[in-house]
Design a protein around this nucleic acid. Structure first.
Length: 661
RNA sequence: GGGGUUGUAGCUCAGUCGGUUAGAGUGUCGGCCUGUCACGCCGAAGGUCGCGGGUUCGAGCCCCGUCAGCCCCGCCA
């Protein structure tokens, strides 16, 4: 098809902004054909740009023949430049922002054609089905043409802009810190970048600019902000990508409350972007209480349901499993969730079985329950429920006649994990969560250290530069697991949207911390020498926080996956379906980097046929069958037959080759 | 690393107990149509049932393996 040139065509209006007040004006519009409707001698085209959609119309009896020919050639997603007069519609469309008007075409340029899209470009109408996510990711450039994704990414841009302005207003200075930096032993797995200039040595992509922002405090900038990309080579989730964006801030001469106050101001403005109130100050909840009441360090407080400790109710019970917990002196506890109401009481056996599966997957042995429905009590341990126990349990339903109590027994870690998840699921199922709300919350007083079985030592809960709680300083040497940190997480609707801490700002405490972490003097010098140096040259008291911009944008947009607010996200297997990255590289590139990849072993297999296998040949044949890949490169088998020696050179065996583990 | 789930027309899906020529909606293409806007009506084209083995007289369906998407556990200072 002959394409038209853009030439001297300039846009006069955006498609979404045309209203009745524009009637009579001649306008020039640009965009994509959302849909062409040809009614014979009357043709409609919906023209889309990022600001909206407007209807173009042409009447066969009124327009020039060459314009008509062009119009009939227009297909979905063609790129058009249109000129016409805005007119009030005969038949208005109340569902469109521009539905009162249409543009009577006087001229049309087809700037480009388009193949039929492999996925629907328009948002799916009600009841319709979306394209599968792998296709959407493969054709992301088309997916991103959809109004809903455009809205998300535009809102994200607005949010990022608001963040920049907010911090600038508060005297923060924006910095850029290195992307090629040093690998650090703590924390997530690093993405590594080989150095060509220094063969055998590697940069790491930053997991966060943590140390750099602290050094900028030592330099005296006092207030730092960066909207930066961070990289962690760990497995993905719906709210986790290998590269993600942090709003990273750091401040000098501040206490925890100062950092929280400035963040709350920002959250109020961000929430207002989408018309949500966010009353300040946000509630503060100690980590201990969060785990005790919600079974989570990022509780969704939109549901009022709390975990309860019912251990004592079973102190004299015949139910051994629960009584054993009561006798364990707090090592194990019986904890429970109570849901009052008919919906909870009407849970079917099948639903409870499904719930039990969820509990098992989270590590529970099963899911004991007690349920009061239309037919009275039913329970997985009914024979152990005495009338007194039933009364005590039912009291947890706050006087309701029907309801459900689910139990978990075990260590606090185990019961928190199970009940924390069930609390969310069941609250959602029973409609206890007000989805319209934005519930902000600070979780504070995190532990400083936790024991790692894998590492065989204590590791930092937040990071190794987090200040111990002043009251707990001595515990660092005597009982490190009990030592609290001056660390705080910002939680929104059950998502951790940010986390930060007050930092250690003197070399002595930092060395103590490294010691508690089992990082020796020599290792500390090698990995963090520059930090220890900096701390010994007049570092101010400092603290900060990092916000997950992707998660925040996701929540602002009302989405449940951060892929919906990232232009080009990766799959759950950390692959880009559009570019097909990662991919093998040219061997020359590897040679320059002095890097060798571990090739899957090539193993050649041949087939030999014997009418009979002589007894003396059986052993070597067995050897062949069990030959490993490495052995195959050297091993030679000897077969003796009819007195003749037959050497089987495995390295010369012909035929197809296969990869083996 | 582990568990769950999905894979059939361009797209979204159905496909019974293993049995004739694998269907629907939508999209696409062609024809008709002057008020459509999820346009309507008529017609047509469109299939490596993810891939590879196996069982069977016969496999979209059963078995084994494998690849990919999604969700979760581990992991993510």
């Amino acid at each position: 098809m002959q394409l038209d040139l853009l030439g001297d065509f300039t846009r006069s209006h955006r498609n979404g902004e045309l209203r009745l007040s524009h009637a009579g004006e001649t306008v020039r519009l640009l965009g994509w054909c959302k849909r062409a409707r040809n009614l014979g001698s009357l043709i409609f085209i919906d023209l889309r740009d990022r600001w909206g959609v407007v209807q173009l119309v042409a009447d066969e009896t009124q327009v020039a023949p060459e314009l008509l020919t062009k119009l009939k050639a227009v297909r979905s997603e063609f790129v058009l430049a249109a000129e016409g007069v805005v007119a009030e519609r005969e038949a208005k469309n109340p569902n469109m922002a521009t539905g009162d008007v249409e543009v009577r075409l006087s001229a049309l340029r087809i700037l480009n054609t388009a193949q039929t899209p492999p996925i629907p470009v328009d948002d799916v109408p009600e009841g319709g089905a979306d394209a599968s996510e792998d296709l959407r990711l493969k054709y992301r450039f088309l997916d991103l043409r959809r109004p809903s994704l455009q809205r998300n990414l535009i809102l994200r841009s607005e949010a990022a802009n608001l963040v920049r302005n907010y911090f600038r207003k508060h005297d923060f200075i924006e910095f850029e810190t290195p992307i090629l930096t040093k690998s650090t032993p703590e924390g997530a797995r690093d993405y590594l970048v080989p150095s060509r200039v220094h063969p055998g040595e590697f940069f790491a992509l930053p997991q966060s600019p943590q140390l750099f922002k602290q050094l900028l405090q030592v330099s005296g900038f006092e207030r730092y902000i960066q909207i930066c990309r961070c990289f962690r080579d760990e497995d993905l989730r719906a709210d986790r990508q290998p590269e993600f964006t942090q709003v990273d801030i750091e401040m000098s001469f501040v206490r925890q409350e100062d950092v929280q106050a400035i963040l709350e101001g920002l959250m109020v403005e961000l929430a207002a972007l989408v018309g949500k109130p966010a009353p300040t100050p946000f509630p503060r909840l100690a980590y201990q209480d969060a785990m005790e009441w919600y079974g989570s360090d990022k509780p969704d407080t939109r549901t009022p349901v709390r975990l309860q400790d019912l251990t004592e109710l079973f102190a004299v019970s015949d139910f051994n499993l629960f009584r054993a917990a009561a006798e364990s002196h707090g090592q194990r506890r019986v904890r429970a969730l109570a849901f009052a109401g008919e919906a909870a009481g009407a849970m079917s056996r099948k639903q409870l079985d499904e719930l039990q599966e969820v509990a098992k997957q989270l590590g529970a042995g099963g899911l004991p329950y007690a349920k009061w429905g239309k037919d009275g009590l039913s329970s997985s341990f009914k024979k152990f429920i005495t009338p007194e126990l039933e009364a005590a349990l039912k009291a947890k339903l706050d006087g309701a006649a029907e309801g459900l109590v689910v139990f978990a027994v075990g260590t606090d870690d185990a019961t928190s994990k199970v009940l924390g998840e069930l609390r969310l699921r069941l609250s959602r199922q029973f409609g206890l969560i007000d989805e319209s709300r934005f519930d902000f919350l600070w979780v504070v007083d995190f532990p400083l250290l936790e024991w790692s079985e894998e590492a065989g030592r204590f590791v930092a809960c937040h990071h190794p530069f987090t200040s111990p709680h002043p009251e707990d300083l001595d515990l660092l040497d005597t009982d490190p697991g009990k030592c609290r940190a001056v660390a705080y997480d910002l939680v929104l609707n059950g998502y951790e949207v940010g986390g930060g801490s007050i930092r250690i700002h003197d070399a002595l405490t930092q060395s103590r911390m490294f010691r508690a972490l089992g990082i020796g003097e020599a290792e500390a010098r090698e990995k963090f020498g520059f930090l220890l140096d900096a701390l010994s040259y007049g570092a101010p008291p400092m603290g900060g926080l990092a916000l997950g911009l992707d998660r925040l944008a996701m929540l602002l947009c009302g989405e449940t996956s951060i892929r919906e607010v990232i232009a080009f996200p990766k799959t759950a297997q950390a692959r880009c379906l559009m570019t097909d990255a990662p991919s093998p590289v040219d061997p020359r590139q590897l040679r320059e980097l002095k890097i060798q990849t571990a090739q899957p072993a090539q193993y050649r297999a041949g087939v030999m046929f014997f009418e009979t296998v002589p007894i003396e040949a059986q052993a070597p044949l067995q050897a062949l069958r069990h030959m490993t890949a490495t052995a195959a490169q050297k091993q030679t088998s000897t077969l003796t037959m009819d007195g003749e020696v037959l050497r089987v050179e495995t390295s010369n065996l012909g035929g197809p080759s296969f990869d083996f583990e």
